[in-house]
Design a protein around this nucleic acid. Structure first.
Length: 427
RNA sequence: GGAGAGGUUCCCGAGUGGUCAAAGGGAACAGACUGUAAAUCUGUCGGCAGCGCCUUCGGAGGUUCAAAUCCUCCCCUCUCCA
């Protein structure tokens, strides 16, 4: 294996911690390895927070390794206390299965599942059949409570309270690793920074039960510059499913990233060469905005496909202008090939039927219908504060919608500077 | 099981009979400034046909002209003891 993936992941800043770095590196160089990452089936779609694990899987799969995605169907019923200050809600088994399906479909867009090159496994397969006494005897005896209590994830929770069910989470995750090692010859586990304790516990367990060396890598935690959770915007989390977060909103999320985050985000979320990213990240003024366009295009293309990304890009450029109209900035990104000549608009939209219009719908009603705002009060506030626009004209006060408001059967609504929505009439 | 503390609007957190839709901070939203950034400043921030009504302070009852605030029961969390 010629390509040194470990090195590349490191250069991109994707490795926060790793066990036996040298050993792991040479292992990945020597032969194809099977590795796994767990995904929580807490929602039926993944959001941008899960993108890092996915991208790491992609990097490794490209390098010839075999990813296993573990759906935490069994562990989701227990609840991982890591990184949380409160006990989380438990999900019903049915809901977990349903969520798992949605996640599986999404993963298939990023990873090649053909010829067993990647697998998706639900840990409920083995966890739900565990016998308590057997488990305690075979697995539980390898864990020292004293040691567990020193784990950061538990330490925190000891302040506020930790239930026994959550306390067991570490054992279950360690057991996952143990099973995968045994049955799939999987020697490497990866996960978020907060998973370190759980991963290390698995490595220890494997050493004790199978006398094998296993390895772990954690990814850095993504936060905004003020330390908040990454991937939240006005509408809540930024999802990978287009039904939950429109492609344009998704694009805009990246386009509006903070300057200070740009280099990190390019490294994490795009496959552009590290050297190119260095160049892009040091650009100033409009250059930095071009770099953000590239970031937004690349990530959107990765998640929603090139065509949808190109459309989002064109829509954004037609609304806000291009940061580099003359294409002075060099990039290997395909965004360079997109012609802006035929810039078309493709805003999130919905169709309104004639009958509805005739019921005497007002602007406020329409804004709510688009989901741009949540309540009438909020809409009124928006209007009062001058943030509401109809066909790019600021609205002074609420009034009924008339057929004249439609231009070629289309009304363009806008909330604030950046959030657009189109309402169409059927023809 | 015993003793104590506590559960407040998205989060943290004040409020202990009317002046409470509920201080303050954070987040969020809008505006100004900018580069569709950050920082800063200003405004908003339960719902509604807008100074009036409705819903909200763990849950259910009760006292009172009036309750987040008092009483009863219940649920949950934490701390200490057993």
């Amino acid at each position: 294996m010629s390509h040194d993936v470990y090195q590349e992941l490191g250069e991109r800043g994707l490795i926060y911690q790793s066990t036996d770095a040298d050993g792991l590196r040479s292992l990945l160089q020597k032969s194809p390895q099977t590795f796994y990452i767990g995904f929580d089936p807490t929602a039926d779609s993944l959001h941008v927070g899960s993108l890092i694990p996915i991208i790491v899987m992609m990097h490794l799969q490209k390098a010839g390794h075999r990813p296993i995605a573990i759906l935490g169907g069994g562990t989701a019923m227990v609840g991982d206390p890591s990184g949380k200050t409160e006990m989380r809600l438990m999900l019903t088994p049915a809901k977990i299965v349903e969520n798992g399906k949605g996640i599986a479909a999404q993963l298939a867009r990023f990873l090649d599942f053909n010829d067993d090159k990647c697998r998706l496994i639900n840990n409920a397969d083995w966890l739900s059949e565990l016998k308590y006494v057997d488990f305690l005897r075979d697995i539980g005896r390898h864990f020292s409570v004293n040691r567990m209590l020193t784990a950061e994830s538990y330490k925190q929770r000891l302040e506020t309270g930790l239930s026994f069910i959550e306390f067991n989470y570490m054992l279950l995750q360690a057991y996952d690793f143990h099973v995968l090692c045994k049955e799939q010859n999987c020697r490497i586990q990866m996960g978020g920074q907060d998973q370190w304790g759980n991963i290390v516990a698995g490595i220890d367990l494997i050493r004790r039960t199978q006398s094998l060396d296993a390895y772990g890598i954690t990814f850095p935690l993504l936060t905004t510059s003020n330390g908040e959770k990454f991937g939240k915007t006005a509408g809540g989390a930024v999802w990978l499913a287009a039904e939950r977060t429109s492609v344009l909103d998704f694009y805009q999320f990246w386009r509006n990233c903070e300057d200070s985050e740009l280099e990190k985000l390019l490294n994490f979320f795009t496959f552009l060469p590290v050297s190119e990213i260095k160049y892009l990240a040091q650009l100033q003024e409009s250059g930095i905005n071009r770099a953000k366009e590239i970031l937004a295009y690349e990530v959107t293309a990765l998640v929603h496909g090139q065509e949808a990304a190109a459309t989002a890009y064109k829509t954004a450029v037609s609304r806000f202008g291009s940061a580099d109209p003359e294409l002075k900035i060099e990039t290997s990104s395909k965004v360079r090939d997109i012609s802006l000549q035929a810039a078309e608009e493709n805003l999130p939209s919905l169709e309104l039927d004639q009958a509805e219009l005739e019921t005497g719908m007002t602007l406020v009603d329409l804004f709510i219908k688009t989901g741009l705002v949540k309540s009438k009060g909020q809409t009124r506030r928006l209007i009062e504060q001058g943030g509401a626009y109809l066909n790019d004209v600021r609205i002074g006060k609420d009034r009924p919608i008339t057929p004249n408001d439609f231009k070629e059967n289309i009304i363009t609504l806008r909330a604030g500077k950046k959030r657009y929505f189109q309402v169409r009439l059927p023809h």
